[in-house]
Design a protein around this nucleic acid. Sequence first.
DNA 1: CTGAAATGTCAAGCTTGCTTTCCATAGCGT
DNA 2: ACGCTATGGAAAGCAAGCTTGACATTTCAG
Lengths: 67, 67
Amino acid sequence: MKNRLEELRKQRGLRQEELAAALEVSRQTIGSLENGRYNPSIQLAFKLAKYFGLTIEDIFIYEEAPK
Amino acid sequence: MKNRLEELRKQRGLRQEELAAALEVSRQTIGSLENGRYNPSIQLAFKLAKYFGLTIEDIFIYEEAPK
DNA sequence: CTGAAATGTCAAGCTTGCTTTCCATAGCGT
DNA sequence: ACGCTATGGAAAGCAAGCTTGACATTTCAG
C-alpha cells in the first residue's frame, strides 16, 4: 500500500514532528508510514484523512497483493 | 468505530462464512468486526470496501474517542 | 565548511488484528 | 422435541502497529 503522506505534509510546510503532534502519534510513526515500513491502523488513517481534509482513498493507494 | 457490515452483508443475502471466504479471512474475523470486538486493518477495510463497491467511509464510521 | 535541525532507522516492549480450535447458544424446518 | 445451520465468543499464538530511546545521516542556513 502506497500513500501520499510526504507529499501532503510538505505541501503544508509541516515537519514530521509537527504532523505527529497534531495526530497524537510519535514522529517515528509518521516517518515509518512515509517510508512504507508499515501501514497505518484504520484509526490513524481516519485521523490523517480528517487532518488533511481528504478521504482515506485519496491518501492511501490500495494494492491487491497485500504484501 | 462503528460499521455497517452486518447490514451490508444481509442486504446481499450472505452468511458470515461466505463473506469471509470472499475476502479470504476467517469467519471469526467477520463476526468480530460485526460485533465490534476490534477494528479491521486498513488492508481488510479496503478489501471490504472493494467487495461492497463502497468507500471505507461509507462502511466505517469514525468516532473521535479512539476507544 | 560548520553546526543545528530534520529525517532515517534500529531495538525492545506493549497492544491490537487475525488465525485456528473449540464449545455454547439461537433459530428454524420437520 | 430433534437435528442442522448460522452465529457468538473465548483462548492461545503469531504478526503488525505503535511507543520510547538512542544514534546515524541528510539538509540547509550562515
